[in-house]
Amino acid sequence: MKSFNLINIFLFVLITLTPKQALADIGGLTKCSESPAFEKRLKASVKKLEQRISKYEEGTPPALALQQQVERTKARFDKYSRSELLCGADGLPHLIADGRWSHAAEFILPGFGFIYISGWIGWVGRKYLRAVSTTKNPTENEIIINVPLALKIMTTGYIWPISAWQELISGDLVASNENITVSPR
């Protein structure tokens, strides 16, 4: 009983005296709306464009194009300042890709988009090569692409995750061990 109390006291002291984790900002980054470097970068960008505008007469096509660019620049900086993006000492937004759910939209959605598109490209390429391998002259169809066939395959390739799963289940996705040559050692 006495040892149980000593353990409890030791754990209580250990827990209460352990320093708490500091909730510091992420690597010196601050919200873009609060970053002086971000505001400085906005002012410098607008000033540079306005100096270029001053070289042209008002209402001319180059002046109008530069004025539109100033408006787009201000809108872009406004969008960044209203978002939850964090800016560094350089005044530029930085993406946080360390797995924090508060910054998931910065990396996870674009990451899934990249994986989906690259998988689609790979799946369509694989399907095209398998289709032309059964033709009379497959090497020529690999060098000179059969555009109608390629377009047909591309339009059905957007469902590649489902097709890949079906081929995996049916055993058609992966070659069997008998079909793989192994060099003797």
Rank of each mutant, 00 (worst) to 15 (best):
P148K: 13
V174Y: 11
E142D: 14
N141F: 15
I15Y: 09
D90I: 05
K152V: 08
E178Y: 03
R72T: 11
L6I: 03
L92F: 06
I96W: 02
G171N: 10
G113C: 10
Q69H: 14
P148T: 05
G119K: 00
T155F: 10
S133A: 08
H103M: 06
K136V: 15
Y158E: 12
L151D: 12
A131N: 05
S54T: 00
Y128P: 02
A97P: 03
L6D: 06
G91W: 00
L168A: 06
S176Y: 09
E34L: 11
E39K: 15
L42Q: 11
T134V: 09
K136N: 03
I15T: 05
K2G: 04
S83K: 05
K20P: 00
F107D: 07
V147C: 10
I53E: 00
T73Y: 03
E84G: 01
K74N: 11
I169C: 03
K127F: 14
L6H: 09
T18W: 02
I180C: 06
Q166E: 00
Y56I: 15
Y56N: 04
L85P: 01
F77A: 01
Y128F: 09
A150Q: 02
D90R: 15
E58N: 13
K43M: 07
L6E: 12
S33P: 04
S163M: 15
A164V: 07
P19Y: 02
T156R: 05
I115C: 07
I144W: 14
E178D: 10
L6Y: 01
I26N: 08
L95Y: 02
F10E: 01
A63M: 10
S54N: 15
Y128G: 08
W160K: 00
G122Y: 01
A24D: 12
E140W: 14
F12C: 07
A175M: 12
Y116N: 11
T30I: 07
K40D: 11
G91L: 00
I143Y: 09
F12N: 02
G99C: 01
I53C: 04
I143W: 13
F12M: 13
R72K: 05
T156H: 03
T155M: 03
P62K: 04
I7G: 00
E178I: 14
N137M: 08
P110C: 07
P93R: 03
L29V: 07
K48H: 04
Q67V: 09
E84N: 12
L14M: 04
N179G: 05
W160N: 00
F4V: 05
I180E: 10
